[in-house]
């Protein structure tokens, strides 16, 4: 059985999305909220990979009065939530075992 992987950046993104108002953020917002841990140039690549893995899903949003193309906002899927909580539980157990 394949165990889904979760890199530190992916974990950070899931954390940010779950703590965001409305659980929705676009890439630049995540970069601003991450205090330099996420970069503009790579955030969308990471989000795209997370989308492939099924951790996040996205939709296009165009706010009234907003010029140009619609923005893509991301939300965590149920599977993404389960993976995050499994990793949190695992890291809690492992850090307890080390102590």
């Amino acid at each position: 059985m394949d165990i889904p992987g979760l890199s530190p950046k992916e974990r950070l993104i899931l954390d940010l999305l779950l703590n965001a108002p409305g659980c929705e953020l676009y890439g630049l917002e995540m970069v601003k909220l991450s205090n330099g841990q996420l970069k503009r140039g790579t955030v969308y690549v990471t989000l795209d990979r997370m989308d492939d893995k099924g951790y996040v899903t996205s939709r296009e949003v165009k706010e009234p009065g907003q010029p140009g193309l619609p923005r893509r906002v991301f939300t965590v899927t149920g599977f993404g939530q389960r993976v995050l909580s499994a990793y949190e539980a695992a890291s809690a157990v492992l850090s307890g075992a080390r102590a």
Partner: peptide, 10 residues
């Protein structure tokens, strides 16, 4: 497109 939209809106 997502990268460029963020850029243009900013």
């Amino acid at each position: 497109q997502s990268v460029v939209v963020d850029f243009q809106l900013e």
